[in-house]
């Protein structure tokens, strides 16, 4: 009966994952391997294709500040910053999706509300980075719900510090993807990350640890059944959580640097809330 409960939990979290996350790994891998027929993504590989591709990205027009009015500067400046703003909008939307997923974890909404906030604040960027992995390969990443493929080289060619933002995520993702998790494994792993009892400022750690332990058991069983030949997969996956924390710390420091150096950059209020006093 205990194993049956753990399987039911895995099914429940997989269903919630499918409900709240529009682009699954299965769909992303199909797009990346060209198995979607005529439905191929638009490729952004330079500034020209970025401008052409903007119609696919839900870009909000942002005003160009006075001191960038000179025509050619204005054009490049606006494109780069507009792209960054659209990334922020998508990230904020993704935070909302992750929040809904978190609420579907059995017992999560019964936790102290302040602890729910803390778990999301510290967990959500880690979750978003894990969710980015299936969209990436060594050459680039899908964006805009799989409608666009943006090359890694193009991202590396952006001006500093924009060019430094994605490279660590590519390095992590290429390694993470070798574990070959599927969407049902991912759902459990994301729940484990969210239910981390060691986040700073938690008021009542015990119920969080109890919830996480159950999900961990469910994940361990899931991996044994779903990947019988992959030795130590559970242990390898748990080790990834340490790498993730470093990536998030570096990411937040980069955003803080951007805030200082890019005088015209405005950070989305939700992302600002999450990153304020994070690390």
């Amino acid at each position: 009966p205990e194993a049956a409960d753990l399987r039911a939990l895995a099914r429940h979290l997989y269903e919630a994952y499918l409900k709240y996350f529009p682009l699954t790994k299965a769909k992303a891998r199909a797009i990346l391997s060209g198995k979607t027929g005529d439905n191929v993504p638009f490729v952004i590989h330079d500034m020209k294709s970025l401008m052409e591709g903007e119609q696919f990205i839900n870009c909000k027009q942002i005003p160009v500040p006075e001191h960038h009015q000179q025509q050619h500067i204005k054009l490049l400046y606006a494109v780069e910053l507009r792209f960054f703003q659209s990334c922020q909008s998508r990230s904020a939307e993704a935070v909302r999706e992750v929040t809904e997923f978190a609420k579907s974890i059995p017992g999560f909404v019964d936790l102290d509300l302040n602890d729910q906030v803390t778990l999301l604040k510290y967990g959500v960027i880690e979750v978003l980075i894990i969710m980015m992995s299936p969209l990436m390969n060594k050459d680039g990443t899908l964006i805009s719900y799989g409608q666009i493929f943006m090359t890694r080289e193009f991202l590396k060619s952006l001006r500093k510090p924009f060019c430094q933002m994605m490279e660590p995520k590519f390095e992590f993702s290429v390694k993470f993807n070798t574990l070959e998790l599927d969407d049902s494994d991912m759902a459990l792993f994301l729940a484990v990350i969210i239910l981390s009892g060691d986040r700073p400022g938690l008021l009542n750690v015990k119920p969080i640890e109890q919830l996480q332990e159950t999900v961990l058991h469910s994940l361990e069983l899931q991996l044994k059944l779903n990947h019988p030949d992959s030795l130590q997969l559970f242990a390898k996956l748990l080790q990834k959580m340490t790498d993730l924390r470093q990536i998030v710390t570096d990411h937040v420091h980069l955003i803080q640097l951007l805030k200082k150096t890019e005088i015209d950059m405005c950070l989305h209020p939700l992302l600002q809330e999450i990153m304020k006093d994070l690390y």
Binding site: R96, N114, L270
Partner: peptide, 20 residues
């Protein structure tokens, strides 16, 4: 609570979307 107003709203409202 004020520091994390939007997160609180997201957690408490299941249907009404916060203006993202």
């Amino acid at each position: 609570k004020e520091k994390h107003k939007i997160l609180h709203q997201l957690l408490q409202n299941s249907t009404s979307p916060v203006d993202l």
